[in-house]
Amino acid sequence: MSEAREKHLDELREIVAEVLEVEPEEITETGSFVEEHEADSLRAIEILARIEKKYKIDIPQSELPRMENLKAVHDVVATQAGWQD
């Protein structure tokens, strides 16, 4: 795993953990936000909004359903931000 990917995952994990009100280490790459951390649509949009603000990118809201766990969030953001992780 590349260092860049690791760094990005940590940053995203931090954002997700804060929005879902859990410790960062509780957010695994494939753990479902909804099933494991009671995420709802409002929190999902909040995660998206914080990511957009931090990385100064636009993510279409149509991507929201896909962003169901940390790995999926990373994949979506990597595509939009042009990360080569």
Partner: peptide
């Protein structure tokens, strides 16, 4: 428009 959705309520 870059406001926080979760704070809107």
């Amino acid at each position: 428009f870059l406001v926080n959705p979760v704070l809107f309520p």
